[in-house]
């Protein structure tokens, strides 16, 4: 038998009151309770980064996070990245560079890039590569992805 935990999550600025079993991960809750399916499930083990969200601005893996611990924290998912119907500059750059193939890894990559650019507005290619260390792309088109993200900060 499971205890249930009642909590309030702040996701993309909006409050969500939920009652969940404590072992349900943030990824489960986002996809299955809130139907925010932009956050992807790849491995459920911390290996792929498809489930990346930002918690207080830092990339974290929603598949390994228990929502019970995230009350009061600022959670951002891919659904909260565009503003006023406009794509985020990272998203625009990825499109312009033709960097997206099947797209499965992209929600995680966009959020990791957004977090990087917030700290370091003009990262080098190497800094971009390190910031994407958590994110695997099975289509493996990393070169254009890295170039696209670096271009946002004005690097070639």
């Amino acid at each position: 038998m499971s205890d249930k935990v009642s909590l309030s999550l702040t996701i993309n600025g909006a409050q969500h009151a939920l009652t969940v079993a404590p072992e349900r991960t943030l990824l489960d809750v986002l996809r299955e309770e809130l139907r925010m399916t932009g956050t992807r499930r790849g491995c459920d083990a911390g290996d792929c980064g498809a489930c990346t969200v930002l918690v207080d601005g830092l990339p974290m893996l929603s598949c390994l996070s228990l929502p019970a611990r995230l009350g009061g924290r600022d959670i951002r998912t891919i659904e909260g990245v565009e503003s006023g119907g406009e794509l985020h500059p990272v998203q625009r750059a990825l499109v312009q560079h033709g960097a997206v193939q099947c797209g499965f890894c992209m929600s995680g990559i966009v959020l990791a890039a957004k977090a990087l650019l917030a700290r370091n507005p003009s990262p080098t290619l190497d800094e971009v590569r390190h910031a994407l260390g958590s994110n695997v792309c099975r289509c493996s088109g990393y070169a254009r992805v890295v170039e696209a993200i670096a271009s946002v900060g004005g690097r070639p």
């Binding site: 980064g49 990346t52 918690v55 990339p59 390190h130 260390g133």
Partner: peptide
Amino acid sequence: AHPAIRNM
């Protein structure tokens, strides 16, 4: 590891 693991 990698950045997201180092954050957790």
